[in-house]
């Protein structure tokens, strides 16, 4: 069963069309990477999938339930109220800039929403948070505040925060772009570990080698359209001129 299906998505900012009729789906346990040059729309499609942007056309379906669809008159209808809440609980998002809550400790950042939004048992939540922090190697930082942590540590906390909500799918929006190379490795290791546990993930990234290594499938986007969608091996041996041009730039850089 597909966890996420996005069909014929259109998105414009004013007169600028940034997503042009994109369709994609993510199956359970699958890891999908989205690559492409800046301004190709790869972050925007993620923001559409997580309802941070409203689409101008198409449909978004989580676990078979329609989060958004286009009606016969062409206007987009979003799910509302409890249905929307239920749909939104399917996914989590890790931001490029972490967006931790600076006035909350690490522990409270992770546990506040599960306790006060999901109304889960406090003890359970704290136990889960401790497990997650241990996995992130941050158990000793539970009482720290975000400003006392390095960027890599903050990003690991934000991953733990997203995971503590028990999402069925986790989105990463360029999770390492704000980090130094060595801190990047910390994050990539965490994502690699999640992959081993068959966490369903969609990763927008500039780390080509990482995408190649960790993904089941890669989408290459340019100018708001999907240029190529295939397995990592095929992608990196593509005959498509644009794909080759894009990946070539990275190879030359490396």
């Amino acid at each position: 069963m597909n966890i996420l299906e996005m069909n014929h998505i259109h998105k414009s900012f004013g007169s600028l069309e940034v997503i042009k009729d994109i369709s994609l789906s993510v199956a359970e346990g699958e890891i999908l990477s989205i690559i492409g040059p800046s301004g190709s729309g790869k972050s925007t499609i993620l923001r559409c999938a997580t309802m941070l942007e409203t689409i101008n056309g198409g449909e978004i379906i989580y676990m078979g339930e329609k989060a958004a669809y286009t009606d016969s008159s062409g206007s987009v209808i979003y799910a509302k109220g409890d249905k929307a809440k239920k749909i939104n609980s399917n996914f989590g998002l890790v931001f490029q800039s972490f967006n931790l809550f600076p006035h909350y400790s690490v522990m409270k950042n992770i546990t506040d929403a599960p306790i006060h939004v999901q109304k889960r048992n406090k003890t359970d939540v704290f136990n889960q948070a401790r497990e997650l922090l241990e996995k992130m190697g941050l158990l000793d930082k539970a009482d720290y505040y975000p400003c006392q942590l390095s960027g890599g540590q903050q990003q690991r906390v934000s991953i733990a925060r997203a995971l503590c909500m028990n999402p069925k799918i986790l989105f990463f929006d360029e999770p390492t772009s704000a980090l130094d190379p060595e801190l990047t490795l910390e994050i990539l290791k965490v994502i690699r570990d999640l992959a081993k546990e068959h966490m369903t993930m969609v990763i927008v990234t500039h780390e080509m080698n990482f995408a190649k290594e960790v993904s089941n499938r890669i989408i290459f986007m340019e100018n708001g359209v999907i240029v190529e969608e295939t397995t990592p091996d095929k992608m990196f041996n593509s005959n498509n001129e644009r794909t080759k041009a894009f990946l070539g730039k990275y190879h030359n850089m490396g």
Binding site: L52, N88, G92, Q118, S158, A162
Partner: peptide
């Protein structure tokens, strides 16, 4: 980003 993070957490 603070609003967005809060929205994502429900």
């Amino acid at each position: 980003g603070q609003y967005e993070a809060a929205k994502l957490l429900g």
